[in-house]
Simulated assay, not measured.
Amino acid sequence: MSDFDVTAADSIDLDRLRRFVAVAEELHFARAAKALRIPRQALSATVIELEEELGTRVFVPGASPTQLSDDGAALLARARDLIRAREQAEREHKPDAPASLRVGFVPGVTVSKWARIWGERLPEHPLEIVGVAQGEQESVLREGRVDLCFVRLPIDRTTTSAIPLWQETPVAVVQKDDALSLLATISPADLADETIQDAADLDQAVDTLALVAAVGGAAIMPQSIARLHHRRDLVYRPVSDTEFTEIALAWPAGTDSELLEEFVGIVRGRSANSSRGGAEPQQRGEAPARKPAAKKPAVKKPAPKKPVARGRKPARRGR
């Protein structure tokens, strides 16, 4: 029976114990070295040093495939406990990271302006910007993958709060040599004889535009999407008498935090010095409030001249 004292592992640095654990779990030196991203020779040297320091063999000599010895199995259990204890201590003593905010955006939306303002006003709070597929705009909020998201309406307003921000111009994308490309604005009547390619799935806009380039026809989509996937062989023209799409900033209903309110305020144009409870600036489409007319200062009328009696000349003053 071995007289190996497993508590001797307590004095061994954790880096060497982690290397031993990697080999003990893989039971393969080459795979363990690859996982640790170190040379195999360095890993073998570490195990040899460990065995010499502990005075026992932790792997069965000459075994193929690699096998743990009884002392090695005892060391593995001890090493795992030591590593877990160290990691737990590090977590407990690690200072809390500053609160951050995750903001998603669907294709076609540009958030760089608001991210810049956020960095200037709240540099101590990281802002994570996350690209979101159009088809996942509600699920990322529902599943908590982002805190807020720039979305395209409509969305389920029973589970999300949202503030509409702006409308997107609808455009028709056609081939560069199509007769419709000569028009400044295209009407639905102009498209009556055109093959309209299905562009409802904005996540597949690249494929839709490739189809228009290949076989012709027209695809109607938000101008921001057409710009995002611009092609030299296609042009886009505004479409009249067509419903606009609308971009909104949304977040899960019932959630509230200071950082969320700060970001909403930035998007709505609140200045850095304005109070959170103050009046918000007008949104697009709202009529500007009329300012009260300034009161004109009263004009002082000159005193009326005294009438001069007829037939009498005014007395001359003496010199």
Score class of each variant (00 low, 15 high):
76 L>N: 07
76 L>D: 01
76 L>M: 02
76 L>W: 01
77 A>K: 15
77 A>R: 13
77 A>F: 11
78 R>E: 01
78 R>V: 00
78 R>I: 01
79 A>E: 02
79 A>Q: 04
79 A>R: 00
79 A>M: 06
80 R>M: 05
80 R>D: 03
80 R>S: 04
80 R>G: 04
80 R>L: 14
81 D>L: 14
81 D>E: 15
81 D>F: 09
82 L>Y: 03
82 L>H: 00
82 L>C: 08
83 I>H: 08
83 I>K: 02
83 I>W: 11
83 I>T: 02
84 R>Q: 12
84 R>S: 05
84 R>P: 00
84 R>V: 04
84 R>K: 06
85 A>T: 03
85 A>G: 08
85 A>K: 13
85 A>N: 12
85 A>C: 01
85 A>S: 11
86 R>S: 14
86 R>Q: 12
86 R>G: 00
87 E>V: 06
87 E>Y: 04
87 E>D: 12
87 E>K: 13
87 E>N: 03
87 E>P: 00
88 Q>G: 02
88 Q>H: 10
89 A>F: 10
89 A>Y: 01
89 A>K: 06
89 A>P: 01
89 A>V: 01
90 E>R: 14
90 E>K: 11
90 E>D: 11
90 E>W: 09
91 R>I: 01
91 R>K: 13
91 R>F: 05
92 E>P: 00
92 E>W: 13
92 E>H: 06
92 E>L: 15
93 H>P: 00
93 H>Y: 07
93 H>L: 13
93 H>Q: 14
93 H>D: 11
93 H>T: 14
94 K>W: 04
94 K>P: 00
95 P>H: 07
95 P>M: 11
95 P>K: 12
95 P>N: 03
95 P>C: 06
96 D>G: 10
96 D>M: 08
96 D>L: 15
97 A>V: 07
97 A>I: 05
97 A>F: 10
97 A>M: 07
98 P>N: 07
98 P>C: 02
98 P>E: 11
98 P>F: 09
98 P>D: 08
98 P>I: 04
99 A>K: 11
99 A>N: 06
100 S>T: 05
100 S>Q: 13
100 S>G: 10
100 S>R: 14
100 S>C: 07
101 L>A: 06
101 L>S: 13
101 L>Q: 06
101 L>D: 08
101 L>K: 12
102 R>V: 08
102 R>G: 06
102 R>F: 04
102 R>T: 06
103 V>F: 05
103 V>A: 08
103 V>N: 00
103 V>P: 07
104 G>C: 07
104 G>E: 08
104 G>Q: 13
104 G>Y: 08
105 F>D: 01
105 F>L: 12
105 F>E: 00
106 V>Q: 13
106 V>L: 09
106 V>A: 12
106 V>R: 06
107 P>V: 07
107 P>L: 08
107 P>W: 10
107 P>F: 10
108 G>R: 09
108 G>A: 05
108 G>Y: 12
108 G>H: 02
109 V>R: 02
109 V>C: 03
109 V>H: 02
109 V>W: 08
109 V>D: 03
109 V>F: 03
109 V>N: 05
109 V>M: 03
110 T>V: 14
110 T>S: 12
110 T>H: 14
111 V>M: 08
111 V>W: 02
111 V>I: 15
111 V>Y: 04
112 S>H: 13
112 S>L: 09
112 S>C: 02
112 S>E: 14
112 S>Y: 10
112 S>R: 15
